[in-house]
Amino acid sequence: MSLNALRIIWRVTRLNFRAQLEYRSEFLMMIAIGAIWQVSVIVFATVLLSRFTGMGGWDSSDVLLIPATRMLAHALFVLFLGRMHGVGRHIQEGRIDTYLVRPMPVHRQVQLEFFPTNAIGDMTVAVGLMVGALSRSQLDWTAGRITYLIACLIGGMLLEAAMFTVVASASLRFPAADYWSRWLEELLGTFGSYPLNVLPRAVGGFLTFGLPLAFVAYFPAAVLTGHGDSTGVPYWLAAASPLLGALAYLGARLLWRWSLGHYTGVNG
């Protein structure tokens, strides 16, 4: 990406931010929505942790690292790549057709569609939870562990982006496929915040290989807290979660490019 492209991205983002300020009550509520969404996940996780102690053989301070990782990865996704969620509406309204004739990659235009105000709330709560989780953790936070955690956060962000990009690619062919993105978000929120070994093996397998939700936070947290051998998958696979996230995102972007090449608007 050239320096000029970065300058344009920065300018458009600033304009988008100012545009969000046009509706002040909506702007404030969007920040609140990000915070509320994250808090609801925290409350749910806390309730389960307090009622069902020793969940899946994990100590509660270790379990807390799962929602913290997932939520921070999710907040990063919302901030940087989140516009893939709901791209079906751009397709339904024919905006993609306009993007195709502009001198900027379509994916970038989609990402620059609007400023994600809710990411401010998302990020605030997620950082707060991560700080809380790290302060309660009994682990020795060496430079290696911290580096791995950062890699996992980026990997989690990319993996979540990959899943939504796949749905967005499907939406280019079947606009109603956008319906799945709402479900995907719901599944990530509900089942991404605790050890998946409490679930039956088949269900855990579905959330690992069918929908790779386990790689976002569960496997990284398991590796960090020493539960990497009891996840039901080989240790190396669990440890490679950040790498898998990056590969999945790369694959999803290739799929997006291919789908865009085969896109036909309403006029054929």
């Binding site: 509706y23 929505i33 609801s40 749910f44």
Partner: peptide
């Protein structure tokens, strides 16, 4: 009054799910 209600609807959905017992 506000012209937009996207955020309010999302807040409502979360509040509804959380406070009505859908999550737990």
């Amino acid at each position: 009054w506000t012209l937009r209600n996207g955020a309010a609807i999302m807040i409502l959905i979360f509040a509804q799910n959380l406070l009505s017992g859908v999550y737990a």
